[in-house]
């Protein structure tokens, strides 16, 4: 793939991830726990891992977190989404590349969502200097599995559509 084309496609992926995080912020979640969210932008992370690789996926996540925290949220939110984003991208890329015969996209996505929550909670307990934040872990794991499943199914549909259209090849 030519580097200009690659750059444009990655920029498109970043903007789509940004739109998804904006849309996500419109949807109210009734669970008042820091870190519980839909994680729709993970669809784009997964697609980037599958069509480009983990380096590009990390780049997309980094730029997305940077821009979305500029739109609203600020430095603290950036720190949290960054920690969760990097950890989940690395885990998803590892699972997808090394053992994709064993895991489906849905499984990779669940692992990513769960690692996102674990990473955020780890940063939160360091940030607050208090381990009792871990009280939230089980609830966050439940939400991670459910949302990871949903995001995984969306990604699977998107990946097969993209493969058919050859848009990212």
């Amino acid at each position: 793939m030519k580097s200009t084309r690659r750059l444009v496609l990655l920029a498109l992926l970043v903007s789509q991830a940004l739109i998804l995080s904006v849309v996500e912020s419109w949807i109210p979640i009734p669970i008042p726990i820091p870190g519980v969210k839909l994680g729709l932008a993970n669809i784009i992370t997964l697609v980037t891992i599958i069509f480009f690789g983990y380096r590009e996926a990390l780049l997309v996540v980094l730029v997305r977190c940077l821009l979305s925290s500029m739109f609203g949220g600020g430095f603290v939110i950036f720190l949290f989404s960054m920690a969760g984003g990097i950890l989940s991208t690395l885990v998803m890329a590892f699972l997808y590349n090394k053992i994709s015969r064993v895991f489906s996209i849905v499984g990779v996505s669940i692992a990513g969502a769960v690692m996102h929550n674990v990473g955020q909670l780890a940063v939160a307990s360091v940030f607050m200097k208090d381990l009792s934040v871990m009280y939230y872990l089980p609830v966050l794991l439940v939400s991670g599995v459910i949302m990871g499943c949903f995001v995984g199914i969306c990604s699977k549909l998107l990946v097969s559509a993209l493969q058919r259209s050859k848009a990212l090849q």
Partner: peptide, 25 residues
């Protein structure tokens, strides 16, 4: 659609969830 690894993965996470709730209780 789901593969063997997925089910094992979810199983491990569910175990973790139960342990976490148990610990909190």
């Amino acid at each position: 659609m789901l593969k063997k690894g997925d089910i094992i993965l979810v199983g491990i996470i569910v175990l973790g969830i139960l342990m976490g709730f148990g610990w909190n209780r």
